[in-house]
Structures are given as C-alpha cells and as structure tokens.
Design a protein around this nucleic acid. Structure first.
Length: 329
DNA sequence: CGAAACATCCGCCACT
DNA sequence: GTAGTGGCGGATGTTT
C-alpha cells in the first residue's frame, strides 16, 4: 500500500515490456516514457529497454495500429524490471511460456511491475496469491472474483510488495514508476524525471482522490494554488491550516472545502506530505542531524518529525538516510 | 513511552 | 429551488 514499508534499494538497468494483441498504447507509452527514453543529457540514468513479443508478428493495439517488438520472450531472462501492461492475456490465461519466464524472473530477483490491467497477468502467475494488489477501479471486482487468493485493494493508487508491484488506472502507473525510480536512484532522480514528464513528484492516497483532481489551467491560478506556492517557501515555519486559510482570505471551513475539491487531500495532510518530502531531500543530500532537519521542516521537536516521517514512509529518518543517502551528499 | 493539550476535519445546519 | 459560506460539536489524529 502506498507508501510502502519496503524501502530496500532496487537495481534497474535492464527493462522489458512483453506485448500481446490488445496492448493499450497509453500504458505502453507510460513504460516507454519512464524507462525507454535517453535523458542522459540531464544526468538521468538510461536503461536497456525492449519490447518482447509473444507472437512472431506485430501485435495490434487497442487503438488499431500495430507495434513490432524487436525482442522475443527470452529477453525477459536478462531483465531486472519487467513491466506488464494490458493485452489479450487480461481476458484469457496468459501464454504458458510467458508465465514460466515471469516465474523465472521473479525467482532471479527481478522486479515485476504491472500497470492497470497488467495486474491480471501477474495474478494469473499465482505470484500475487496472499498479497495485496490493485488495478483500475473498473476491474477490481472482476480481478477479485477471478483471483480470490489475491488481496485486491480498490482504494489505492499503487501497491509495492517489494518485488512485485501493481498500479491502478494507467496514470497511476506513472506514480508507481516514479516510486520505483525513487527506490532505485533516490529523490533527486525521481523528481527530475517527474519534472521532465511534467507530473507531480508523488501523490499519496486512493483512486477517488485522483479521479476528482482537475487539470490545472496554465496561467489561471486558483486561490488555493497560490497558497500552495506560498506555503512551500515557508515549510520551515510552524504553518497551521488556519494560517493557510488566512493567506487565502477564506474562513478555515471554506478553505478546507476548496482544498479538498481541488487537490483531493486535506490541507494538513498536504502540508505534512510537503514537510516529509523536504525531509527526505535533506536526509539524502545533507549531513544535517535529524534534529536540525526536523526543525527545517517546521517541526517543533525531532519526535514529532520522526512520528510523521514513519507514518508516511514506513521507516525512521535515520534508516531512510542509510538506505538512500546519495553520492551528491 | 504514555497522558494531557492541542489541531484538524467532517457532518450537520442555518444563513445568504 | 440551487449553490456556496461559515459556525459548531465532537471524533480522530498530532504534538508536546
């Protein structure tokens, strides 16, 4: 469940996406955008990236055009990240050769990531039995019915079980991908990729919150947006929800309502998320003590910071630093 | 760590 | 009648 307790570092160098007839172009696009582009000019990592075909012919996408995958299924044998997207296998049982290779990859320690209905393939391998998982809300009931041993969670954006992960609607695949990039390379890389893709670095919370999120209008800032920008520059102070409301020239009650309607999260939850994000960055990129970082993130005591940090990330600040402290530090 | 003090948030309702 | 505002109480969660 996001955010996950599993924070072990992840190695990603070699990424493969098996494709079948019925592949969804957007899901495929998300995989390509996250792992298939060369952004080395910005100091971002590059990956060996390939599509692997299940047939010896181009596969037909749901949008009607065809895609030719260069690699065969054996490409899965060398990958450390396998991304599963929708295909004909989400209705029928996946090809046994694919299932066998996925089992193999999993046994080898590769990470298997599913976007949207790609979770059905993962469920069909049996690897998700007894584990939490998610998929698009339109298919959560069907997934639970077809795979009763999987613990389907309709309310979350993505689930990371450490070596297997699943995401809700396609866009949640972006969140999951960024989360995996974060595990592999740390906050700086993950937020930089997010910036390149022009998506917010991390969204917490369930699908319902996402669905109601409006598309921000360029050059047309809401009063709430203005307060967010302002608040981000003063995270080191003891900002309260009432302070935000005052800045927005609204009563706390009205402000809270607008806030939830715009962002799908409450003011205090958002504020805490920003503080923790700042805390992560400081833990990774500086050698400041936890007490100093707590103070810089607007917490009156290191205990309060530790509690909030643990609630959001599932780890203590000190262990987080040990796992993720980057070379830039 | 736990208890006491404090803040947040949500349903409800009256009001414009 | 509809849409938005804001005050209040108390359950819930956070900070000291």
């Amino acid at each position: 469940v996001a955010p996950p307790a599993a924070l072990d570092s992840l190695t990603i160098t070699d990424v493969v996406v098996p494709v079948d007839d019925g592949v969804a172009p957007f899901e495929l696009g998300v995989a390509c955008e996250l792992f298939g582009l060369d952004r080395s000019d910005q100091g971002l990592p590059t990956y060996d990236f390939a599509l692997a075909r299940v047939h010896d012919r181009p596969v037909r996408t749901t949008a009607g055009f065809s895609v030719t995958a260069d690699a065969g299924l054996d490409r899965i044998d060398t990958a450390d990240l396998v991304i599963l997207v929708a295909g004909s296998w989400t209705e029928r049982a996946p090809h046994p050769a694919l299932v066998a290779r996925l089992h193999n990859a999993h046994d080898r320690g590769a990470h298997l990531m599913a976007i949207c209905r790609g979770a059905f393939v993962l469920a069909a391998t049996g690897l998700l039995d007894g584990q939490p998982a998610t998929t698009h809300w339109r298919w959560t009931d069907e997934m639970q019915a077809r795979f009763p041993r999987v613990d389907v969670r309709p309310e979350v954006l993505y689930v990371d079980n450490g070596d297997l992960s699943t995401s809700a609607g396609t866009a949640a695949g972006i969140d999951l991908g960024l989360h995996l990039l974060h595990r592999a390379h740390g906050t700086r890389i993950a937020t930089e990729v997010a910036r390149r893709m022009v998506v917010p670095p991390h969204r917490a919370g369930g699908q319902a919150q996402y669905i109601h999120r409006p598309i921000p209008h360029a050059g047309h800032q809401s009063p709430v947006q203005d307060v967010l920008d302002w608040a981000c520059t003063r995270l080191h102070t003891a900002l309260s929800v009432d302070d935000l409301a005052a800045r927005a020239r609204m009563t706390p009650r009205t402000f809270a309502r607008h806030f939830v309607a715009t962002l799908g999260t409450t003011p205090h939850q958002w504020l805490t998320a920003q503080r923790i994000q700042l805390g992560r960055e400081l833990l990774e990129t500086t050698t400041l003590t936890v007490t100093a970082i707590a103070h810089r993130c607007g917490y009156g005591s290191p205990d309060a910071f530790r509690a909030a940090f643990a609630g959001h990330t599932g780890t203590k600040p000190s262990s987080y630093r040990t796992t993720f402290a980057g070379p830039t530090r």
